[in-house]
Design a protein around this nucleic acid. Structure first.
Length: 270
DNA sequence: CTCTATGTTTAATT
DNA sequence: GAATTAAACATAGA
């Protein structure tokens, strides 16, 4: 579920659910999600703290607590949050829970669910390298196409591989990259340093458009549930089908170890 | 049984 | 160094 739009949606809901509330009990027994922290230290660090705010950079979430304590969360491949009554039983693949006493209203319980357990929950006193090393965030910072052109111009990788590097732009994932390159009519195999300024401009605008579009899609649906991604994409997952723009059959290849769908008819190779 | 999967890190190789 | 490739992690679904 998680690329930039999904994580931004998670941030907005977490902020609504948690801001101003006190964590009465933070519990997780999953040493893989908590790695390298111990489960006991997790509760000890968080219990009794009040949530000041929830922020996001790229695919990382940062829950800011009283006393300068920070809780970082990465959703990995299958992570997500849901809100339940504190008495509700554990969800399938529930890996952590945060019981909350809000400033006003009923107690609630925010659950972290993650089938594949690639996600992380990290307690820290200051920003962690995974957070500080991120490139510009397309939503928070915008996309500066001159800067993006400089970044891409220094690399000889296929442009899609360069886009997936979180120091290029934070939050771009496999689906976003595939959809944006299709919109920008650029072949994902194009060498990053072979792109013209106009190509980079189109890629930047396409990324913004796809992010906005997917964010808008997510503004519907059950608020308390784990985010579901039942969403039709233009090309992702559609290899073998005709290109919605030119009708050429869409092709699947592997780039940088990731499945990649594109249209050999209307996406130009640079 | 096989293959694929929205992510990231690490090792091995060129 | 830079780039490439593969594998690893853990689980579910087709």
């Amino acid at each position: 579920m998680p690329e930039l739009p999904d994580v931004e949606w998670a941030r907005a809901r977490l902020r609504r659910w948690m801001r101003g509330a006190t964590i009465t009990a933070a519990r997780s027994a999953d040493r893989r999600i908590l790695r390298p922290q111990a489960p006991a230290a997790f509760g000890r660090a968080l219990d009794g703290r009040r949530v000041r705010d929830v922020s996001r950079r790229g695919k990382w979430l940062r829950i800011e607590l009283d006393g300068g304590v920070l809780l970082f969360s990465h959703l990995g491949m299958t992570g997500g949050f849901a809100r339940r009554d504190p008495a509700a039983p554990a969800l399938a693949a529930e890996r952590a829970r945060f019981d909350l006493a809000p400033a006003r209203g009923k107690p609630s319980s925010v659950r972290y669910v993650d089938a594949r357990r690639f996600g992380r929950l990290i307690v820290a006193e200051r920003d962690i390298p995974e957070w500080t090393d991120l490139g510009p965030d397309p939503l928070a910072d915008g996309i500066d196409s001159r800067r993006l052109a400089q970044t891409l111009g220094r690399r000889r990788l296929p442009v899609k591989v360069a886009l997936l590097d979180q120091s290029t732009l934070a939050g771009v994932g496999n689906i976003l990259a595939i959809e944006a390159l299709w919109r920008a009519r650029i072949d994902p195999r194009s060498r990053s340093d072979a792109l013209a300024a106009a190509d980079v401009g189109r890629i930047g605008r396409a990324l913004q458009a796809v992010i906005r579009h997917e964010l808008a899609e997510r503004e519907r649906g059950g608020d308390d549930e784990v985010d579901e991604r039942a969403h039709a994409f233009d090309v992702y997952g559609r290899a073998g089908e005709p290109c919605p723009r030119c009708g050429t059959v869409l092709v699947a290849i592997v780039l940088g170890g990731r499945g990649t769908t594109f249209c050999p008819g209307c996406q130009v190779r640079r």
